[in-house]
Amino acid sequence: MKTVAIVDYGMCNLDSVRRAVEECGGTPIVTDRAEDLETATHIILPGVGSFRDGMQNLRQRSLDVILREQVVGRQIPFLGICLGMQMLAAKGWEGGETDGLGWIDGEVRKLEPAGEDRRIPHIGWNEVAVVGNPPLFDGIGSAKDFYFAHSYHLSCRNEHDVLARTSYCGGFVSAVSRGQILGVQFHPEKSQRVGFRLLRNFLSV
């Protein structure tokens, strides 16, 4: 059985992730308790809100330490969604300079208007160009549309952490991976068929 801990750190939007995990055959637990995170087979860190608030909330609950033990230490499969992906970075600038979890080298910066792409936040469906054939995108392939809603993006220092890119505002990284640590800037829980496929792929990691 796949027990999926959905990390509750006061940044909302947990119900749609919980429902999507359920639809994809996992058993979701929305939690901020260490014992739930220790027994989970998979961990999802969702999130809507600013980088600074997100990191503060994680630290207040000691979740940064607990997550490090489980994800970096015990190598439990991990998926960060939106802000949850951004917080993997070493540093973010939303709400002021703030240290992130630091599991992926890079910084989270604001999208900058480029050419025709001047409307920020970037809200809506957009293509995700996948690098190679990673298992997370199994059966989905490249150039499918996922749903985005964000103003900031994770700029990676190492090319080998980049799992996918999306061409908006000069292009940004829309998925990352380092081992079993995965992150997506888009919202699979709101991306219907392709989103559910991605979540099922994550559950089979």
Binding site: V48, G49, A149, S151
Partner: peptide, 8 residues
Amino acid sequence: AQRFGSQC
């Protein structure tokens, strides 16, 4: 917007 982000 400050609390939950402009996108919502």
